[in-house]
């Protein structure tokens, strides 16, 4: 139980990993979606997770965000918080942001309101009932609108945005949350080539100050991220390393190109 944290417990705090998964398994009706998965994400790291359909990428993110509880294994946040005991709202308040594969924004609210509602702050109903907009928050929203290039559309209803614009708005909402770790599920899906490259640049610029895990299928996009890659297969890690090294490994080629 306590042997694993002890192993890295002697490191200074800044060198301790942001996220630490060890021996995590989760089965659904006998099917092992995640099977003895171990993964370490350093502070400020950008990590791409690739793998064929059914490799367990979404379940992994569900476990990190508290949506799904693992059957066995350890999930530690900053070496101290046991994420398996928390739910989605807890992990979000702790500093884990999650971007869905299908862009999900609040379609009946304006772009501006979408960002305002995502801004870090007291999430209790009573705080919301008596909430008054503050100048500091307005400035932060302006800044975010600049980053996601939606400044001209701030008063538009989010439901009327294009697919790519919604993806960007959702990324903006995650940034508004000011998370320590971002989980991003296939951000390039449905984007044009130009948008894909802009998104890769955006994610690279976000990493450093925050840790980012990107799940992606698009190899050009992963190449553009230029970071360490983890290959998942049948619920556990098949390979880890630079994209060029990983994609040259025979077992990875076999999984990707079929048996």
């Amino acid at each position: 139980m306590s042997q694993q944290p002890h192993m890295i417990g002697g490191l200074p705090p800044e060198a301790q990993p942001q996220l630490y998964l060890d021996g995590v398994s989760r089965a659904f009706d006998g099917f092992k979606a995640i099977n003895n998965l171990s993964l370490v994400i350093e502070r400020g790291e950008l990590r791409a997770v690739i793998g064929p359909n059914g490799a367990g990428k979404t379940t992994m993110m569900d476990i990190i965000t508290g949506k799904t509880r693992p059957d066995t294994g350890q999930v530690l946040w900053e070496q101290s918080v046991d994420l398996t005991m928390l739910d989605e709202a807890d992990t979000a308040q702790l500093g884990i942001g999650r971007k869905f594969q299908k862009p999900t924004v609040f379609e009946n609210h304006t772009v501006e309101d979408n960002l305002a509602l995502a801004l870090k702050g007291d999430r209790s109903p009573f705080a919301a009932l008596f909430y008054r907009a503050a100048a500091k928050e307005a400035a932060r929203i302006d800044e975010l609108l600049g980053i996601i290039r939606l400044g001209d559309l701030r008063r538009r209803i989010a439901g009327s945005l294009s697919h790519g614009q919604k993806q960007w708005l959702e990324i903006g909402m995650l940034l508004a949350q000011d998370p320590q770790l971002l989980l991003v599920d296939e951000p390039a899906a449905g984007m044009t080539d130009a948008e894909t490259m802009l998104t890769a640049d955006l994610l690279k610029s976000i990493a450093g100050a925050r840790s980012v895990i990107v799940v992606e299928h698009d190899m050009d996009f992963v190449r553009a991220l230029d970071c360490k890659v983890t290959v998942l297969h049948q619920g556990s890690v098949l390979a880890e390393g630079r994209l060029d090294a990983v994609s040259a490994m025979p077992e990875v080629i076999e999984v990707y190109l079929g048996r």
Binding site: E88, Q93, G97, R98, F100, F106, L117, S124, A128, L129
Partner: peptide
């Protein structure tokens, strides 16, 4: 109020609201 806006959020996209840290059940 902002609470009213959050209600519309969870009506339209409940899990998005949860993942932003709102306790939907409250």
């Amino acid at each position: 109020s902002r609470l009213g806006k959050v209600l519309v959020c969870l009506r339209d996209a409940e899990s998005r609201t949860r993942f932003l840290g709102y306790r939907v059940e409250h």
